[in-house]
Nucleic acid binder design. Structure first.
Lengths: 198, 198
DNA sequence: ACCTGAACACCGTTCAAGT
DNA sequence: ACCTGAACACCGTTCAAGT
């Protein structure tokens, strides 16, 4: 593809995401990456210690684009919580538009995390950042602390799950505003001991 | 481990899930499986055409245990939708109790699906079956057709997402009954053209 | 029918040598 | 600094031979 006379880490990472989305996770191989970039395998090992190092960089890129950048964009848009959540769902549901692999990347990354401590740490960071952001928004919408935390985790789970489902069993038409409204509506929370929760 | 004098496919599948949960997805290797079962590699290739065939059997097993069996158990318990949903969430949140790999299996299977048509077909079947079951329950709880379908997809997404999050960023305490109540509460549904939805 | 043991093939990784 | 080309190592797969 379009390349300058010397390769950058970004070139390798982009090529790897391209292979991931086009052919699947097994296509992330040194020889295929090199064919894609028109170099030999030694070049790869000058830029990266091994394939695990490349995956680590892919995960770092995903963390930035899929988490921090999204949160920054949402924050700067200064939307009310309700509209912000609706836009978040729309972003997740319009998967193919993303350039870092979309749903395939999420599945691959969470899979890699199971066998790679470093990857797992980054995924945890991303989830924690998302959770804190969602909790903040829900507090802003008037929910109590415990309730905002609970609903934030459930919202995050829904977003992650939808990412895995998009395109799969032909999802029905979703009433996102209705769902968001339901999530913004406080419930009576009672803890296991029977005492008031909030 | 405990083995009769001749191995069954079940022995291999169980060993593979054991390796998956203990060491991660990269541990599903012919040599490691054989060490675990006390045989040589030729034995594996008498039972299975290749590793892809073993994975296909693992996916088939997951589909039965994680989908059909769960639905059958829920159905025979004859619970009201609200209690049924609460129990479903509890089942998902108590991951380690499962014997087919739990959350790690879900991530691995959805990852394999990206590069394997046969696996993808089974995952699609499982999702479709879950979706139909949840939709049926929501209709039983009094939601309209379109609303039940929408909420069923969002419920399924939440369950799948929670499976990926369990244990990860130390989830806060979740108010599952409150969430279920919110999902059972009908919303005014209006479609994109502005007309009444249901 | 079920498994052994050795061979082969593929792809990840290394490294001395080039520019 | 960045890459080539050849070598090596590992693990998936095959297969003739054993019981």
């Amino acid at each position: 593809m379009a390349q300058r006379d010397t390769l950058t880490p970004q070139d390798w990472i982009k090529a790897a995401f391209r292979l991931l989305t086009s052919t699947g996770p097994t296509a992330i191989r040194v020889d295929l990456l090199c064919r894609e970039l028109g170099v030999t395998k030694g070049s790869f090992y000058w830029h990266f210690a091994d394939l695990a190092a490349l995956r680590a960089q892919m995960v770092a890129h995903w963390r930035r684009v899929a988490t921090s950048d999204v949160i920054a964009a949402m924050t700067s848009a200064e939307l009310a919580p309700r509209e912000l959540f609706i836009r978040l769902f729309e972003t997740v549901l319009s998967q193919p538009a993303r350039d870092y692999g979309g749903a395939m990347a999420e599945a691959a990354i969470r899979h890699w995390a199971a066998g790679d401590e470093a990857v797992q740490a980054v995924v945890r960071e991303a989830d924690t950042e998302r959770l804190a952001f969602l909790t903040l928004q829900l507090r802003g919408a008037g929910l109590s602390g415990p309730e905002a935390r609970s609903r934030a985790a459930l919202l995050l789970a829904t977003l992650i799950g939808l990412e895995q489902l998009t395109g799969e069993p032909a999802l029905p038409r979703l009433d996102i505003p209705g769902f968001v409204d339901a999530m913004l509506t406080p419930a009576r929370m009672v803890d296991a001991t029977g005492g008031a929760f909030a």
